[in-house]
Design a binder for these strands. Structure first.
Length: 826
RNA sequence: GGGCAGAUGGCGGAAUGGCAGACGCGCUAGGCUUAGGACCUAGUUCCUGAUGAGGGAGUGCGGGUUCGACUCCCGCUCUGCCCACCA
C-alpha cells in the first residue's frame, strides 16, 4: 500500500477555510446584468436558540445546489435571515425575565456561528432580521398601502375570550372550552380585528397554479382545497313572517325540487328572530349554547347533528311549497350564506338530520342506468337525470343546473355564484413582540393611519412581561397615547401587532436590496434577482406561508413595486427529520444536537451524511450509525487524493500500464461526472449523486496501484483525483478546498468550473447482453457496443445454455433491444 | 368521511417498462496490530443443492396489461401526512 498520511484533521481545516471565505467575502454577490442569475432560497429560520437537524438538512440541500450552480457558471444569490418576531421570545420573557429582544438577538448571534460552522455559502452581507425596525418598518408601510386600497380593513370577528384572564385565547389554548391557564369557561366574543383582503385574490391564487408546474402536485392540491372554490348559485327563499327572503348557497340547484326544509346556522342573524311558539325560551337558550360550543367543538371530529324547528316556514321559489325552517349545528356561518336548503334524498348530512327529526325525503335525481338504486342506507344516488322537478324533469343534472339557475335569475330570486372557502387573513395579535399595526384611533376623526413619515412605529423597549391579561403594549401609556395627525387632538394607538406571517410574506424581496431606506426594496435589484428560482423548505409551510407570500407578491405587483406575479416558480418540499418514529421536537425530547455531531465528526461529515441518507423530499429518520460511514468516506477521499497527488515522479514514459484498468477508470470518471451533474442539477437526488461519487472513489482506489506504474496512468490518476474533488466540492466544501489547494490549484474550488463529461468516453465499448427465454434470464454474453440485432439474435440462439433451455421447442418470436436484451419466446 | 403520499434485505435506500437490492450502515470471517470500537480483504435477500456448478422463489395482498412489471391499470390491506359537517 502507499505511503501513510496523517489523518484528516477536520477541525483545523474546516476552521481554516471558513476564515478564508469570510476574509475574502467569497459568497457576496452583486447584480451582473450580463450574467445569468440564480436565486436560491431556503426558508429562513425562527431563532429559537439552537440550530436543529431540520435546519441542517434544509440548508445542506440548499448549499449543495447553490455551490453547484456557482460552479456551473451562474451568478448565485444565496441569502439568509431571521424570522425574529413571535411568541417564543415573549414566553421566554415571562418565564425567565429576559427581554424578548435580548433573547432573540442572543439566539441569532449563537445560531449565526452555528450556521457558519456548517460552512454554508451565504451572502451574510444581505442578512435580514425581521425584529429590527429597518425591516418591520416596511411591514407597516405595506400595511398602509393596503389600507389605502381597501385591502386592510377592520371587522368584528369571533374570538375565544377568557372572562377571568380578560384575554383572547388561541384555539389550542381554549381546547375543551376551558382556559389553558385558569380553567375558566371560555366565551365567544366579538372583537375588532384587522384583516387583509386575500379573498380579492382567491381566483388569481388559483389561476396562478398554471405557472407552478415545478411545485409538488400535492402542495398545489392542498392550496386548491384551502382556497376551496365552488361553483353554484344563490337562491332566495321568501319568508312571509320576516317580510324578506333568506338566501342560501347551493352547488346543486338541480336538486331544489327535493328541498324539503331550510337550515340556518345558529350564528345566522335571523336565527333568533324566527323562533316562535310556546318553546321560545328553550329554543333561544339552545341557540346561544350551540353558538358558544360550536367555536370550540368545530375542531372535534364527530359532533352529533342537532337542531330545533323554528316553527316558521319559507317558500321554495321553484315549487311554491311551504317548507319548515330549522336551526342546526351542522351548518357553518362562515361558509356560503350561513343558510342551506336541505335535500335529504341526495345529501348524506341532510339525510342524517331528516331521519333524526322525521323530516320529508323526496327523490329528484335518478341514475341513468337503473341498476344501482336506492342505496341500502336509504340515501339516493346523486347524479343522473332530474325527476319530479316540474318542467325540468328528464334533464341530466348538469343541464338542469344551468337551466334552473337561469330560471332563478330571470325570476330575480337567485343568481349563479362562485364561493370560496378561503377567508380573509386576520392579522391582529394581542402580543408585544410583533410589528405594531400603524393605526391611531382619534375620538374625532376615527381610524387614522400613521403618516408614512412617522414610520416605523417602534416596539417600545420598556414593557412588563408578567403573563397576565392583555398585551404588554396596552399598559405602556407612552405608547398608547398619541396625537391625531389630522386634527391634533388626543388619539389612542392600536396596541395589536401583526401576525408574524406578514414578515415572511415578502422577505425574499428584501434580500435583493437589504439596506434600502426609501422603499421595501429597490425595483431594479428585485427585477434582476427575482423570482426565487428554487425555494426549499418544509412542507408544513405548504399552505399558509406559501399562499400568503403569493398573495403579497400580487399586492406588491399591483402597487407597482414589481412586475412579478408569482415569487416561487419552483418549490422543493423538504421531508421531515424524524427520530424514533416522530418528528424531532423539543417537546418530544427526541432531538439530536448538530453541534455534538460537528464536534465529533466535522461539518462536512454531517452535511454528507444527512444528504446521503435519503432523497431531499422524503422523510429522514435519524440514526447515529450512518455518520460514522460518512466520516470514514471523507478519510478515504483524503487518503486517495493524497496518494494520487504524491504518485512517484515520471518513470520511463513508455512503461506499460494496465489498459483495462485505464479504461475502467476513465469510463467511470466520465459516467460519474454525467450522473452527478444530472442528479444535482435536474433531479435533486443528492443521495444518488453521493453514491456515484463513492463508486468513483472505489474504482480509483482499486486501480491506483497498477496505474501508478506508467506515465499515462499517473496522468489519469491525477485527472480523476481532480474531478473527484470538484464533484464532491458542493457536498464537503472544506475538505475539497483543502485538497484543491494541495493539488496545487490556485483559487478556490468554489470558483472552479464544474468538470465536463465526455460522452464518448463515458460510453460502454462493450455491453453485456442479457438473454431471456419467456422473460426469464437464462444467460448473458458480451458484445461490441455497435452490435446489430441480427448478430445479437444469432449469438443468443447459439449459446449452449439457451439451446438446453429451449430443448428443441420452436421459437415463436424474438424480442431484441439493441445493446441490452434478447428475449426468446416459445 | 374526503384527499394525497408511501409500502423493496437486519436498517437507510437504489433501479420509473429491460440484469431487483447500486451506495452506505450493520453483521460474519480473515488479515494487520501490544491492543483496538482504527485500517485492509472477502462475504452478506430467502429456499434448495453438498461446502461447488446449478435450480427455484422474491419488491405489502389479489387480479390484469405486456415478449418482459418494483415500475403501468383495476381491486384491497396497512402506514404517514393534510383537510374535515364547505351545502
Amino acid at each position: 500500500m502507499s505511503k501513510d498520511h496523517s489523518e484528516y484533521d477536520f477541525e483545523r481545516i474546516e476552521e481554516k477555510w471558513q476564515n478564508v471565505w469570510a476574509e475574502r467575502k467569497t459568497f457576496e454577490v452583486h447584480e451582473e446584468p450580463g450574467k445569468s442569475k440564480f436565486y436560491l432560497l431556503e426558508m429562513y429560520p425562527y431563532p429559537s436558540g439552537r440550530v436543529h437537524m431540520g435546519h441542517v438538512r434544509n440548508y445542506s440541500i440548499g448549499d449543495v445546489i447553490a455551490r453547484f450552480k456557482t460552479m456551473t457558471g451562474w451568478n448565485v444569490l444565496h441569502p439568509i435571515g431571521w424570522d425574529a418576531l413571535g411568541m417564543p421570545a415573549e414566553n421566554a420573557a415571562i418565564k425567565h425575565g429576559i427581554h424578548p429582544q435580548t433573547w432573540t438577538l442572543d439566539n441569532i448571534a449563537h445560531m449565526k456561528t452555528q450556521l457558519k460552522r456548517m460552512g454554508f455559502a451565504y451572502d451574510w452581507s444581505r442578512e435580514v432580521n425581521t425584529c429590527l425596525p429597518d425591516y418591520y418598518k416596511w411591514n407597516q408601510w405595506i400595511f398602509l398601502k393596503m389600507y389605502e386600497r381597501g385591502l386592510a380593513y377592520r371587522k368584528k370577528s369571533w374570538v375565544n375570550w377568557c372572562p377571568d384572564c380578560r384575554t383572547v385565547l388561541a384555539n389550542e389554548q381554549a381546547a375543551g372550552g376551558e382556559c389553558w391557564r385558569c380553567s375558566a369557561e371560555v366565551e365567544p366574543k366579538k372583537m375588532d380585528h384587522w384583516f387583509l383582503k386575500i379573498t380579492n385574490y382567491a381566483e388569481e391564487l388559483l389561476a396562478g397554479h398554471a405557472q407552478l408546474q415545478k411545485w409538488p402536485e400535492h402542495v398545489l392540491l392542498m392550496q386548491r382545497n384551502w382556497i376551496g372554490k365552488s361553483t353554484g348559485a344563490y337562491v332566495d327563499f321568501e319568508v312571509p313572517e320576516l317580510g324578506r327572503p333568506i338566501r342560501v348557497f347551493t352547488t346543486r340547484i338541480d336538486t331544489i325540487y327535493g328541498a324539503t326544509f331550510l337550515v340556518l346556522s345558529p350564528e345566522h342573524p335571523d336565527s333568533h328572530a324566527l323562533i316562535a311558539g310556546d318553546r321560545e325560551p328553550e329554543l333561544h337558550a339552545w341557540i346561544t349554547k350551540t353558538v358558544a360550543e360550536s367555536r370550540l367543538k368545530r375542531d372535534l371530529s364527530e359532533v352529533d347533528k342537532e337542531g330545533v324547528d323554528t316553527g316558521k316556514t319559507a317558500v321554495n321559489p321553484f315549487t311554491g311549497e311551504n317548507i319548515p325552517i330549522w336551526v342546526a349545528n351542522y351548518v357553518l356561518m362562515e361558509y356560503g350564506t350561513g343558510a342551506i336548503m336541505a335535500v335529504p334524498a341526495h345529501d348524506a348530512r341532510d339525510f342524517e338530520f331528516a331521519k333524526k327529526y322525521g323530516l320529508a325525503v323526496r327523490e329528484v335525481i335518478t341514475p341513468e342506468d337503473e341498476t344501482a338504486r336506492p342505496r341500502n342506507s336509504g340515501l339516493f344516488e346523486d347524479c343522473g337525470l332530474v325527476v319530479n322537478s316540474g318542467r325540468f324533469s328528464g334533464l341530466p343534472s348538469a343541464e338542469a343546473m344551468d337551466a334552473m339557475a337561469e330560471h332563478a335569475e330571470a325570476g330575480r330570486f337567485g343568481e349563479k355564484a362562485v364561493t370560496y372557502r378561503l377567508r380573509d387573513w386576520g392579522i391582529s395579535r394581542q402580543r408585544y413582540w410583533g410589528t405594531p399595526i400603524p393605526i391611531l384611533y382619534c375620538d374625532k376623526c376615527g381610524i387614522v393611519p400613521v403618516p408614512y413619515k412617522d414610520l416605523p412605529v417602534q416596539i417600545p423597549y420598556n414593557a412588563e412581561f408578567t403573563g397576565e391579561a392583555g398585551s404588554p403594549l396596552e399598559k405602556i401609556p407612552d405608547f398608547v397615547n398619541a396625537t391625531c395627525p389630522t386634527c391634533g387632538g388626543r388619539a389612542r394607538r392600536e396596541t395589536d401587532t401583526m401576525d408574524t406571517f406578514v414578515d415572511s410574506s415578502w422577505y425574499f424581496f428584501r434580500y435583493a436590496s437589504p439596506r434600502e431606506e426609501t422603499l421595501p426594496f429597490v425595483r431594479g435589484a428585485a427585477d434582476y434577482w427575482m423570482p426565487v428560482d428554487l425555494y426549499i423548505g418544509g412542507v408544513e409551510h405548504a399552505i399558509l406561508h406559501l399562499i400568503y407570500a403569493r398573495f403579497f407578491t400580487k399586492v406588491l405587483r399591483d402597487l407597482g413595486l414589481t412586475a412579478l406575479g408569482e415569487p416561487f416558480p419552483h418549490y422543493l418540499a423538504q421531508g421531515m427529520v424524524t427520530k424514533d418514529g416522530s418528528a424531532m421536537s423539543k417537546s418530544k425530547g427526541n432531538t439530536v444536537d448538530p453541534d455534538e455531531m460537528i464536534r465529533n465528526y466535522g461539518a462536512d461529515a454531517l452535511r454528507l451524511f444527512i444528504l446521503f441518507a435519503a432523497p431531499p423530499e422524503k422523510e429522514f429518520a435519524w440514526n447515529e450509525d450512518g455518520i460514522e460511514g460518512s466520516s470514514r468516506f471523507i478519510g478515504r477521499v483524503w487518503q486517495t487524493v493524497e496518494d494520487c497527488r504524491e504518485a512517484p515522479g515520471p518513470g520511463p514514459a513508455a512503461a506499460a500500464h494496465d489498459d483495462a484498468g485505464f479504461a475502467r477508470l476513465q469510463k467511470k470518471m466520465h459516467q460519474t461526472i454525467r450522473k452527478v451533474t444530472e442528479d444535482i442539477g435536474t433531479r435533486f437526488h443528492l443521495n444518488t449523486a453521493i453514491s456515484a461519487i463513492m463508486e468513483l472513489t472505489n474504482v480509483l482506489r482499486r486501480e491506483a496501484e497498477t496505474l501508478r506504474g506508467s506515465a499515462a496512468g499517473r496522468e489519469l490518476l491525477g485527472q480523476a483525483a481532480e474531478r473527484l474533488v470538484l464533484l464532491l466540492a458542493p457536498f464537503t466544501p472544506h475538505l475539497c478546498e483543502e485538497l484543491w489547494s494541495r493539488l496545487g490549484r490556485t483559487g478556490l474550488v468554489y470558483h472552479a468550473p464544474w468538470p465536463f463529461s465526455d460522452e464518448a468516453l463515458a460510453q460502454e465499448e462493450k455491453a453485456t447482453i442479457v438473454v431471456e427465454v419467456n422473460g426469464k434470464i437464462r444467460d448473458r454474453f458480451e458484445a461490441e457496443a455497435g452490435v446489430t440485432e441480427a448478430e445479437m439474435k444469432a449469438t443468443a440462439l447459439a449459446l449452449p445454455r439457451i439451446q438446453a433451455t429451449l430443448g428443441g421447442k420452436p421459437v415463436r418470436a424474438i424480442v431484441c433491444i439493441k445493446g441490452k436484451i434478447v428475449n426468446i419466446v416459445t
